[in-house]
Design a protein around this nucleic acid. Structure first.
Lengths: 151, 151
DNA sequence: AGAAGTAGTTTGTAGTACCAACTAAATCCA
DNA sequence: TGGATTTAGTTGGTACTACAAACTACTTCT
């Protein structure tokens, strides 16, 4: 009782969307985190620590995450020429292709939800979600590159 | 291009909400999954396999999850009297209290998002999210008990 | 130049999640 | 009825995720 119904709806909705992301990732043997990494690096080259900051993870966690993605040929490391302690991480062509395929697939998988609304409702929902979103740059891009610039 | 902006908004929003849930859970040493288990069992007593089905997890995963929650005194097991192969899982008083506290905390943590909208917008967003949600009973309750009955 | 700080990796531990193999109990069927 | 099959749950093995602490290499500060 007195439960904030919008909070309820947001949480329920988030679980549904995360379910889509998790299942889509799983089809390609990617965890949610790996999905985010791929999405973030789609249009950026970042240092290990920057990447960790985007994801809110420890740098030691990033090391392993990058190792495994690198072994799969999705990401690669480069020594940073300006600061020789630093390591830049970037997405490979194979990673780029996979990211594009994931984007399509995620959009397709979200269509059942989207199609329950007519065009006007879709526009309105988009507006309201955008309005509710704090301008938070740690919220990772997962679909289009630059998604997190929109906030 | 041709990127579905609503898909984008839904994903971004989902990450923001999941961030809140993850952080709130972490404050109490609960993973997202444990959070969901607690939410689901708030008003239900389920067998291990039913619980696994709700969460989309393997029953062997459930065993471990329940073990750890039981060790912490949040859940308990009971032999099912009707089917002696089956094991019922239920929430303890301590678990119930923790779940209530989590609900409050999650709602509070979502307020920054909610407060960006005025009352009419909040109502509208709730309606649209509900309208977009497929009537999916595997989408778990996390806040109020019975959240998943609303769909 | 030496001290302090920063970037990233490595190591160790715990939790999550799967699959395959197993035990115990229920159901099927013949 | 009584053995074969199916179902419920646990156990054991493996891989990934994540953190903290310790460590190396490099940079920056004084």
């Amino acid at each position: 009782m007195t439960a904030e119904p919008l909070a309820e709806a947001l949480v329920l909705n988030a679980f549904q969307v995360m379910g889509v992301l998790t299942r889509t990732g799983a089809e390609h043997d990617l965890s949610l985190t790996q999905l985010r990494v791929l999405g973030i690096l789609r249009d950026r080259r970042l240092r290990v620590t920057e990447l960790a900051a985007y994801l809110g993870l420890d740098k030691s966690t990033m090391s392993g995450l990058i190792d495994r993605a690198e072994r799969r040929g999705l990401l690669a490391r480069d020594k940073n020429p300006d600061d020789r302690r630093a390591v830049d991480v970037y997405i490979t062509d194979a990673g780029q292709q996979l990211a594009a395929r994931l984007q399509e697939q995620i959009q397709r998988a979200l269509m059942p939800m989207i199609d329950r609304l007519d065009a006007a409702q879709q526009r309105r929902l988009t507006e309201l979600l955008d309005a509710a979103s704090p301008p938070d740059r740690t919220a990772a891009a997962v679909l289009s590159p630059r998604a997190d610039r929109a906030g």
